[in-house]
Design a protein around this nucleic acid. Structure first.
Lengths: 326, 326
DNA sequence: AAGTGCAATTGACAAAAGTAAGGAATGCAT
DNA sequence: ATGCATTCCTTACTTTTGTCAATTGCACTT
């Protein structure tokens, strides 16, 4: 009878009311700093159950955990970078122990944490394309920013990476609770004539016009190596790449090759590329450049010098390299 | 020599660079889900040191931890409350085990977590006064909302609680990175004539005018008992209180007694009170009511019925009582 | 009414995190 | 240089948290 009484008592009032137990446990744990034992006592369940509740709370995304952006924007290196390139702000994440693709994830995560604070209701945000941008969208915590429009800055392309330009803008807009304006056109078409006719198409024209209305932009810098995304995605052949590099290309921005001053380099692709004109990206309220890596340093510097970037997210190693860059 | 080599190696590159170690540890722990052992290995320090780093990170406020507002605004009770009173949204925090002042802390904490999402750049927020509002301001994580103005809705009064109306608005505006417009006048003056003359004073007039410009408001409901703040703070005597109660007062809002319909009750204090007119608080973009307790239920209902509240923060017990209130 | 499948819960054990007392390095005054 | 105070770090120990296989209660079949 002892056991029976125990069970009965435990069952009914213990289960406070469905999901509520999870919420109560999470509240006590995260807001009232009770340990699992105390919570278990109050909810009349075993501590193991509390562990489960808390895991569920985390899995359901009830818990938001982030680091204050000021931590990354106010230390020495960030301030130095900001001042050297006359930026509004720089966000420097710690270096990864070994520098591989994990770099991109780190930086993307940092940017994802910062981005919501850089946006306001009513903004029109232009978004470029790339692994970094995708990782950013992926890492972003869902929020809702009122009356926000996200526009795709570059046409679409097939890629071996499993994400396209639309996926970047779509995912980003979903995470931000924003309206999404896609650019339903390939990034590169086979001949200049077709490109100009496409640009006349009412739908495309409107979509391109929307790009001119952007007051903020989010982009990364691509490399000019054979493994570069522009090559792998079939936008440029290796020969073209070599030709652009020969004429001073040191990076890629929104599908366009740029020189050390950030100026787009004219070439065989220019006419055939469906993308925002880089000149539209100068002098925006915000130009957020998110990139890492030694091989992107020159391009990132160019994006600053060219006036595209007002805000930067990168890691300490890259930031140092940018400061050392003459 | 082994020890010497070890020490040298450990000292220099181990200490990554001052405070940075703290940031790196926090990043790895909170963003990369590494455990303290792994972090200790990577930073070449003992695990105990990592514990210290993480504690420092928390103490310095580098870590932001909160619960998604949707958790509290989308469950059954919150939706029911919202619908019954035609609110825009309701935020219901879990009940405290035993209902004392801890209730206020809980609810204030919830409101503090929600408030930043309810504000936008350019808003003019009117703020009332009370223990709840103060606790809210105290619990609020510092942020910065651009071009936000916080106005004090009620004049100041001496209180035994250690906080005044200005302290509420000042603290709140500091936490929100907002501009603060204080109302430099006592809440209650001794005779009606002085009150009306004060209202003519240019400075006061401007401050009162600013109140009319508020598009959002934050307030609580006070009780009509002898322990009520209006009495304790000397705004009303117990006799006056009784008189107001006799004429239907069921709560206090911005220093004014209201009836079940939320209408302010005329009486000896009306003329002498320096405060926003309640009619200005009807139909705002947002009216955030933050209160808890059985004894405030009627007043809270009145604030809804009267059209002051568009958003509510309370606890489950109070919400249930409001739903049961006829 | 007994059997079956499922999800929630539990106790016992393992891992991780927190604490406190002691110990090296650093800087400063003597 | 020596001693002293301070800061930061470490080792050894305690508490808290996480894991997992086993159990319980419950809805639904047979």
């Amino acid at each position: 009878m002892g056991a029976q009484g125990y069970n009965l008592r435990k069952r009914k009032p213990g289960k406070v009311s469905g999901d509520n137990a999870v919420i109560e446990a999470a509240w006590m744990y995260y807001h009232e700093d009770l340990n699992q034992n105390e919570i278990a006592k109050r909810l009349h369940v075993s501590r193991a159950t509390v562990v489960n509740y808390l895991q569920e709370a985390r899995e359901l995304g009830m818990i938001r955990l982030s680091m204050r952006p000021e931590v990354f924007t106010t230390h020495e290196l960030a301030v130095a970078l900001r001042d050297k390139f006359s930026l509004q702000s720089a966000y420097i994440v710690p270096d990864a122990p070994q520098g591989n693709d994990a770099d991109i994830e780190r930086v993307a995560k940092g940017a994802a944490e910062w981005l919501p604070e850089l946006l306001q209701p009513g903004d029109r945000l232009g978004v470029a394309w790339g692994q970094t941008i995708y990782a950013l969208a992926e890492a972003l915590e869902p929020t809702h920013i009122d009356d926000l429009y996200v526009s795709q800055l570059v046409g679409s392309m097939t890629t071996p990476y499993g994400f396209t330009a639309e996926i970047c803008s779509t995912k980003l807009s979903q995470k931000l609770g924003a309206n999404c304006i896609n650019l339903h056109v390939p990034a590169i078409v086979s001949d200049p004539d077709l490109a100009s006719r496409l640009r006349q198409e009412p739908i495309i024209r409107d979509q391109l016009a929307a790009l001119s209305n952007c007051n903020k932009a989010l982009f990364a810098i691509g490399t000019c190596t054979a493994e570069s995304h522009v090559v792998v995605s079939g936008v440029a052949s290796t020969e073209m790449l070599a030709s652009y590099v020969g004429r001073g290309a040191i990076g890629v921005m929104c599908g366009q090759f740029i020189d050390v001053a950030g100026k787009p380099i004219d070439g065989p692709l220019s006419e055939r590329l469906m993308s925002v004109s880089l000149s539209k990206l100068v002098g925006l309220e915000m130009g957020l450049l998110v990139s890492v890596g030694k091989d992107r340093v020159k391009g990132m510097v160019a994006a600053c010098v060219g006036g595209y970037a007002t805000h930067i997210v990168t890691d300490a190693a890259t930031a140092t390299a940018m400061l050392d860059d003459v």
